[in-house]
Simulated scan of single mutants.
Amino acid sequence: MKNKITKLIGILTITFVLLMPIAAQAAGTKSFTFDMVHTLGIGTFTSTKDSVKGTVNMSSWGGDTYFTIHIYEKSGGSNILVDRLGFTKSSAGSPYTDTSYSVKKGNKYGYEIWKNQNKKRIKGSGSLSY
């Protein structure tokens, strides 16, 4: 009987360790980097809550002072713009954050970075907590 309990505990421990990355992914955070001139897709994710928080760290504004992350609801093959996260250069510096409450838990959303089409390059990294 003691051997069966020990085996069961071992199997449960191994299962828990194997499922940890899946649980972390389900938490709803996506990290990304960008080095872009006009627009860049971040990805499509299913929202795990009724908000999305964007945080970015800028290494170069490239002469620009503002950019947005567009949020598109993915439904039935169409993309509907539901909101934008806006980031404006300030003397306080990185990190920059913005939150949208236009998303709904369980729905699928696409995220894209957009900036002025002026051939100036911005660089940085960030995360979406959705």
Rank of each mutant, 00 (worst) to 15 (best):
K2Y: 11
N3D: 15
K4D: 15
K4F: 02
T6C: 05
T6W: 03
K7W: 08
K7P: 01
L8P: 08
L8D: 15
G10Q: 03
G10E: 02
I11H: 10
I11N: 14
I11R: 03
I14R: 05
T15V: 12
T15H: 04
F16V: 06
M20P: 10
P21K: 00
A23V: 13
A23Q: 13
A23T: 10
A23W: 14
A27T: 00
A27M: 03
A27Q: 12
A27K: 13
G28K: 14
T29N: 12
S31G: 10
T33W: 08
T33F: 03
T33G: 14
D35Q: 15
D35W: 15
V37M: 15
G41P: 06
G41Q: 07
G41V: 05
G43S: 02
T44N: 08
F45G: 00
F45Y: 13
T46N: 12
S47H: 11
S47C: 10
T48H: 04
D50A: 14
D50Y: 02
D50C: 11
K53P: 02
K53H: 08
K53R: 10
G54Y: 03
T55G: 10
M58A: 05
G63K: 02
G63T: 06
D64K: 00
T65S: 15
F67I: 05
T68N: 06
I69K: 00
H70R: 12
I71R: 05
I71F: 04
E73N: 04
E73Q: 10
E73L: 10
K74F: 06
G76W: 09
G76K: 15
G76I: 11
L81T: 11
V82M: 06
V82N: 03
R84Q: 14
T88C: 08
K89M: 14
K89S: 13
S90Y: 09
S91G: 12
A92N: 12
G93M: 01
S94D: 07
Y96F: 12
D98Q: 05
T99A: 02
T99N: 06
T99F: 04
S100V: 08
S102D: 11
N107Q: 13
N107L: 09
N107R: 14
E112L: 12
I113R: 00
K115G: 02
N116D: 15
Q117W: 09
K120C: 13
R121F: 10
R121N: 06
G124Y: 01
G124H: 05
Y130D: 02
Y130P: 00
